[in-house]
Design a protein around this nucleic acid. Structure first.
Lengths: 175, 175
DNA sequence: CACAACATGTAAGATGTTACATGATTGA
DNA sequence: TCAATCATGTAACATCTTACATGTTGTG
C-alpha cells in the first residue's frame, strides 16, 4: 500500500487532519491519484494501530472536531526506510479492458471493430490534449514531472493505437 | 473484473477446464497478465452462479476429474455486449511507489537520490531489452501487439526518467 | 523413486471503490 | 434559508495475491 507512505511523507512535514491529507495529496498529484475517505480513514486508523502515527482530537471552529495526526519516530524511520528502498514495486501493466478486447475483436463485425478503435483513438487524443495543456500551466516541478509522465504514456498509447489500426486493416481488408 | 470477460471469451470458442483456462490465457497474454488459481476458481464459481457458464465434471485419465466449463447463451450475450461496449475502463495510471517517492526524494541525501534514479533507469533498460528481444520472436499477431504496447510504454518511461534525472540535477546541482 | 507437471480448490489478507450515514459551518 | 464545503466515519462489495491443502500422472 503506497497510500500509507504517502500519508507518512505528508505527516513528516507537519501534522495534518484527515480531510486535509486528502486535499493536499490530490493537489500534489494533480488529480492523477484520487483517494476516497473509505480508504483514507481506515488507513489512518491502521497507521495509528501500528504506532507509526498518533492521533489527537482538537477543537476547530465551534463544535467542529478535527483529528490531527502526527508522525512518530517509528513512523519516520519506517518512511525513510521505504524511501531509500531500491526495489520499489513497479505497476506498469496493460491489464485493461480495451487491451483484452483486442484479442476478441475478430468476433465483431469489421465495421464495429473499426468504429471501436476509432472511438478509442479519439478518446486518447482528447486526453493527450488535456495533459498537453496542463503542461503549459505553471506549478511545482514534481507535479509537472508527473503530468509529463502521463503525457508520455498517453502518446505511447496513441502511437500504439495507430499501429493496431494498421494491423487490423491489413489483417481483414475492407474489400 | 475483466478476467470474467477473458474467461467468457475463451469459453466462447470452446469448453475448457480451469487449469486449461489459466494456461491458455497466460499463453495468449505472453505472461504479461498472470492469473492465480485463487482468483480463477472463485471467478468460475461466480460465473456459474450467474448462469453465464455451466460446469460438468468429466473423467480424465484414470482417477483425475476435470471440471469442464461451457458458455451459456446468456453468457455469450453478456460477452458480446461487453465486447461492443464503447466506454471500456482504461487503467492507464501512474499510482506506483517509485513515482510517489519522487515527491519526497529531496529528503534523501543527493547522492542516494541519484543512485536510486540510476538503479531505476538500469532496471527499465533491462526490461526494454527483454521486450525488444521478445518482439523479434514469432507469434500470433495479437500477442505481438501486446508486447509492442508494453515496449512503447517502457520506452516512454525511459524517456521520462531521462528528463527526471536532468531536472533533479538542475534542481540540486552537485557542486 | 523422486520430481515436475497436472488438477482443484480454500482462507486470509491487501487494496481499493461506492454508497451510506451524520452533522457543522460558510456564503449567497 | 439553501447549497456548497468542511469534517469523520462505516459497510458492502470488487479485485487480486499469497499461502495453504490435497491428490494424480508422467518422466528420468
Amino acid at each position: 500500500m503506497s497510500l500509507k507512505f504517502a500519508i507518512l511523507g505528508l505527516l513528516d512535514e507537519e501534522p495534518h487532519y484527515g480531510y486535509e491529507i486528502k486535499q493536499k495529496f490530490e493537489q500534489m498529484m494533480g488529480s492523477l491519484w484520487p483517494i476516497s475517505y473509505g480508504q483514507l480513514y481506515p488507513t489512518l486508523r491502521k497507521l495509528a494501530e501500528e504506532k507509526l502515527v498518533t492521533m489527537q482530537t482538537v477543537q476547530g471552529k465551534k463544535a467542529v472536531e478535527k483529528n490531527v495526526y502526527s508522525i512518530t519516530n517509528s513512523g519516520r524511520e519506517r518512511f525513510l526506510r521505504w524511501l531509500g528502498k531500491k526495489d520499489k514495486k513497479d505497476q506498469l501493466s496493460i491489464k485493461d479492458e480495451f487491451t483484452l478486447s483486442l484479442f476478441f475483436l475478430h468476433r465483431l463485425e469489421k465495421q464495429q471493430a473499426v468504429e471501436l478503435l476509432r472511438l478509442k483513438a479519439e478518446d486518447v487524443k482528447n486526453r493527450e490534449r488535456t495533459y498537453s495543456e496542463e503542461m503549459r500551466s505553471h506549478g511545482p516541478i514534481y507535479k509537472k514531472l508527473l503530468t509529463r509522465k502521463m503525457l508520455l504514456y498517453i502518446q505511447a498509447e496513441q502511437a500504439w493505437l495507430q499501429e493496431v489500426m494498421v494491423e487490423i486493416n491489413i489483417d481483414c481488408p475492407e474489400a
